[in-house]
Amino acid sequence: MTETVVPEPTQEQAALFAKVRRMMLIAGLTTTLAVAAVLIAIGYRLFRSEGSAVATDVTATLPKGARIVATGTAGDRLVVTLDVGGMTEIRTFDARTLRPTGQLKFVSEP
């Protein structure tokens, strides 16, 4: 049996092979990093999501004679502006649970 003898690469060829290997290593590491980033983003979204919001019916009682002037949202809060007998009042509610989170009253100085 005769064995095929592979000639030794020249110095230029060896430098070219080393450069190609280095470029392939960089490309492989970049691809691995990109795939890991995508998997981390998908995992974060899956485990961070709180699911769909459950529909709830809430009845909020207003003071006698009060009327709603304006409503709005601010981030994850529902903001309701009331006029209570000439006095302005702002009430905030959590948008997901509709629980009251704060109340701000404005009065005129005497």
Rank of each mutant, 00 (worst) to 15 (best):
L25D: 10
L104N: 11
T97P: 04
A15W: 01
F106L: 04
A55C: 15
A14P: 01
R96P: 01
D94R: 00
P100I: 00
E89T: 14
I42H: 12
G51C: 01
F17E: 12
L39F: 10
D83L: 10
G86I: 00
L78M: 07
D94F: 00
T4W: 09
R77T: 06
K64S: 14
P9N: 03
R45V: 14
A18I: 03
T31G: 15
M23Y: 11
T61A: 02
V69P: 14
I40F: 15
V107K: 06
V54W: 08
E3K: 14
G85R: 05
A36C: 15
T92C: 07
D94G: 00
R77N: 15
G86H: 01
G43F: 09
T97M: 03
G75W: 00
A60M: 11
M23S: 10
F47P: 15
A41T: 11
V38N: 02
I26C: 07
G43V: 13
T56P: 13
I68F: 12
G85M: 11
Y44R: 05
V84P: 08
P110G: 07
D57Q: 11
V80F: 04
A53H: 02
F93R: 01
L98K: 09
A37F: 08
A66H: 01
K19Q: 07
T56V: 09
Q103E: 10
P7H: 05
V6L: 04
L82H: 08
Q11C: 13
G85S: 09
A18N: 07
T101P: 03
R45P: 15
L16P: 00
T101S: 04
L16C: 00
R91P: 06
G28T: 11
P9M: 02
T61Q: 02
P63C: 07
L16F: 00
D76N: 03
T30C: 14
S108Q: 08
E3G: 13
D83H: 13
V69L: 14
T92P: 03
V20F: 05
S49L: 11
Y44C: 08
A37Q: 12
V5I: 11
F106N: 11
E50R: 13
R21S: 07
T97H: 11
T97K: 07
I90G: 10
L16E: 00
A27W: 09
F93W: 03
P110Q: 05
G86T: 01
V54H: 08
E50F: 06
A36S: 10
T81V: 14
A70K: 15
S52M: 12
E109D: 08
L16S: 00
P110C: 02
I42N: 14
V6N: 13
T10L: 02
F47E: 04
V20T: 06
R67D: 07
T31P: 08
